[in-house]
Design a protein around this nucleic acid. Structure first.
Lengths: 126, 126
DNA sequence: CAGCATCCATTATGATACTG
DNA sequence: CAGTATCATAATGGATGCTG
């Protein structure tokens, strides 16, 4: 993925779409940017428990190249980089919603493990 | 994938869903089974240009384990095995439809390569 | 803070030959 | 026909250290 080995040719829309969302964290990045609108690198990092800097960078660059996310660099010290969804990325997210529903259903039905939400407020008394 | 290294825990429905559709041919298998209802091993093989027997078997087994496809073996000579979508698989396919739309849009917009449909009728004069 | 470079481990995918 | 087994390679994921 590091050098975006563009798959294709595609047989139908499904695999064209799956091609750009495949990757361990792409779905979560989309989700996170959709939920918050704009996120900085470190914020995304925190939102994706277990992701390494390299992977996050790779995924973000790939998604930028695929026209899904927008990257804004502020020439400040310390540096600041903000990510947001492009129009295409937002549309993809919309298209992903039913899939998310199905996934939640599946989690319920099969009682799969769910990681704690790092955005959740800290429980009182801790 | 050969031994289904169940990922998770999941952070949201999206990645739970992406987990079961990730794989180079899963989307196409779903598509094919959706379009035709029931397909034999060799039919699926033909429908997925370039897939190796091993990969197809692996994907089908994984999808069976994930409860997406149903596998029926007929004790005949020569052997016959038919695959079809389970209820869950059909629901997944429904959930995948908007994604397919988005993918087709993307193909159009970026003028991406599209493989010829092996199901298409043979052009006259060949 | 937001990265890039390097090395290394694990997975995914493939080609080929063989079997009931 | 519908697979398995075996042998390879490519793609992906991750740990660590360094830089502007």
């Amino acid at each position: 993925m590091a050098n975006a080995p563009r798959k294709g040719p595609y047989i139908c829309g499904i695999d064209a779409a799956l091609d750009v969302v495949s990757g361990k964290w792409k779905g979560l990045v989309l989700w996170e940017l959709h939920a918050h609108g704009v996120r900085r690198f470190a914020e995304l990092r925190r939102a994706l428990p277990g992701v390494s800097e390299k992977m996050l960078t790779q995924h973000l660059r790939q998604m930028e190249e695929d026209g899904l996310v927008h990257r804004t660099v502020y020439a400040e010290v310390p540096p600041r980089v903000e990510y947001s969804l492009t129009e295409s990325g937002a549309a993809l997210n919309e298209a992903l919603r039913p899939l998310g529903e199905w996934g939640r259903d599946r989690i319920r039905r099969h009682r799969l493990a769910v990681a704690p939400d790092p955005d959740a407020p800290v429980p009182a008394g801790s």
